[in-house]
Amino acid sequence: MRHAIQLAATLLLFAAPAAHAQISSPQIKRDKKQPKENVEWLWQYGPPPADGRETQLVLDTRFRPFLAQYLTAPQTFWGSPKTGYKPLDETALDFLSVPDKVLADDNRYLSITGCVFRFNPARGLLWVDLGLPHPLIAFAAIDWIKDSRTPSEPGAEYTLWVFANHPIDPDHIPPALTHSVARWTAQPPSGSTVIQQITRAILVDPDGTPHQIQPAAIGANTFTKPQDFIKSQDDQKAQP
């Protein structure tokens, strides 16, 4: 009887790890369906009114988790090596903390803009493509190049940083994104009449790999004529 009990215990010891290995099999994990991504709640903060409701959007309890889910790339422009750099989602929140607009295009794209509290030249754009099975989210930040002129002077220079949750081919940037950036950079910061001159643009992959591109390739400073910006505004007002 004692030998039978020992044999049963030995079999259990060998069976348990095998069962555990089967449950944690990578193949089973791969076959598990990913939950559906639903960011449709963002739409309620777009037009009307004409400029949307960004203040209410930023205060929505879903907004910070949304940023944390989709903006995960490392960044090295907001902060310093000594004090540390903020996570990208917190950086985006800083650059949108003073609300500007929530604009909708083609019943598919949202452009959410704002700036840093007490430093208007540091401006942010959050662009969302809701027409894909997995939404494409891009965060763009205008960052003052500190060894250029001061932001209050004409000729000050800026870097445009662009981060996306999916890799974007630098040679095939979505036209809707470049249009949004063009419209955004055609406007001066709040309280200023000077258009910011973006002399560098860096497109960053989700893993943090940077790609320096021509600013015009992503639309920066490409609305060079007043009528270009006026037409863009008229198109926006014509949206249903």
Rank of each mutant, 00 (worst) to 15 (best):
R2V: 10
I5G: 02
T10R: 05
A18L: 12
A19S: 11
Q22W: 14
I23R: 15
I23W: 12
S24F: 10
I28Q: 14
I28V: 14
K29N: 11
R30G: 04
R30Q: 11
K33F: 00
Q34P: 01
Q34R: 15
P35T: 02
K36V: 11
V39L: 15
W43C: 04
P47C: 10
R53Q: 13
E54V: 06
V58N: 13
L59G: 12
L59P: 00
L59I: 05
D60Y: 07
R62C: 08
P65H: 01
F66E: 09
L67I: 05
L67S: 08
Y70D: 10
Y70W: 11
L71K: 13
A73C: 12
Q75H: 13
G79C: 13
K82L: 12
K82W: 04
Y85A: 05
D89K: 11
D89M: 10
E90S: 14
F95K: 14
K101H: 02
K101F: 00
N107T: 04
R108C: 09
T113V: 11
A122Y: 03
R123N: 02
L125Y: 08
L125H: 00
W127A: 10
D129V: 00
L130S: 05
H134N: 06
F139A: 13
D143G: 00
D143L: 04
I145H: 03
K146N: 03
D147M: 04
P151F: 05
P151I: 07
E153Y: 06
P154T: 12
G155Q: 03
E157L: 10
Y158T: 11
T159V: 12
W161M: 15
V162Q: 12
V162D: 09
N165T: 02
P167L: 05
H172C: 06
L177H: 09
T178R: 13
S180C: 00
A182W: 00
T185M: 01
A186Q: 03
P188V: 03
S192G: 05
T193S: 11
V194Q: 12
V194M: 11
T199C: 05
R200K: 14
I202R: 15
V204A: 09
D207R: 15
G208C: 15
G208R: 11
G208M: 14
T209M: 14
I213E: 11
P215V: 07
A216D: 04
N221L: 06
P226C: 07
I230A: 14
K231Y: 03
S232P: 01
Q233E: 07
P240M: 00
P240F: 02
